[in-house]
């Protein structure tokens, strides 16, 4: 490879194929994400968006192609998955907080157990993160006592506590009440402004337009079209993109 050190992409996906049994989900996807970039992947249901980002942290394996994350090849059978996952955070549609642990424990447990950080400093950092996602005073609440939006913000804080290089957001507002969507999007927007590299799968077009540096449109396992939001939303060229946008906007 002939990348210069400064322009190395943080995540480099090349020609990735993935199928579940006889169902082809990804049919040759290529995309690069630079440090500090916020990219949004949009597209109809079943177009492989979620599968694509789940492949980035090896929750799903791929059949062929290459995914490089900070120099780690995800499609290497000898990959140290734990190393990869320390670099890549993930936030899920269903929050997936640990229901038997408080908000604070949810956030500080991985730094203490996985990164072997000091308990005191982890707790201080976790409290700081709760403040950042505007949940001061909720440290002792259990997930069941929090609203969906609050749980999702704890989940974002939990992911941030591992100090990842990039965070994957898998339709994180899809399960939320409409009135709590805004607070979660606001949190993500602040992260993006802080320079965190984010890869989002989303149906929130207005949000994508506002925060994304680059938008990718997927359909049937390929990237049909991509571009910066201004041009993407104004003059999409591919008929499939146009059709999708006309339905959703």
């Amino acid at each position: 490879m002939t990348w210069s050190a400064t322009s190395d992409p943080m995540v480099s996906i090349k020609n990735v194929y993935k199928s579940f049994g006889s169902l082809d989900v990804l049919n040759g996807v290529t995309l690069d994400v630079m440090k500090g970039d916020v990219i949004c992947i949009i597209g109809p249901s079943g177009s492989g968006k979620s599968t694509l980002i789940r492949c980035i942290n090896a929750l799903n394996d791929i059949q062929s192609g290459s995914i490089l994350v900070e120099g780690l090849e995800v499609n290497d059978p000898n990959l140290d998955k734990l190393e990869l996952r320390k670099k890549v955070g993930m936030v899920f549609q269903q929050y997936n907080l640990f229901p038997h642990k408080t908000a604070l424990q949810n956030i500080m447990m991985a730094p203490v157990r996985v990164l072997k950080q000091n308990k005191k400093t982890s707790e201080a950092a976790a409290l700081e993160l709760l403040k950042k996602v505007r949940l001061e005073g909720k440290e002792n609440a259990y997930p069941g006592e929090l609203s969906g939006g609050q749980q999702q913000r704890v989940a974002i804080a939990r992911s941030l506590a591992m100090q990842p290089d990039v965070i994957l957001f898998d339709e994180v507002t899809a399960a939320l009440d409409p009135e709590t969507v805004g607070e979660v999007l606001q949190t993500i927007k602040e992260l993006a402004e802080d320079g965190m590299t984010c890869i989002l799968v989303t149906h929130e077009m207005a949000f994508a337009r506002e925060v994304a540096d680059h938008i990718y449109f997927t359909d049937r396992g390929i990237i049909v079209e991509h571009g910066p939001p201004e041009t993407f939303f104004k003059d999409a060229k591919d008929p499939r993109t146009r059709e999708f946008l006309s339905q959703i906007l």
Partner: peptide, 17 residues
């Protein structure tokens, strides 16, 4: 729910943890 396993995996917990 499998989400519990996935969340733990994505936080780099070992299987035993």
């Amino acid at each position: 729910p499998s989400g519990q396993w996935e969340a733990a995996e994505s936080l780099a917990y070992t299987r035993r943890q």
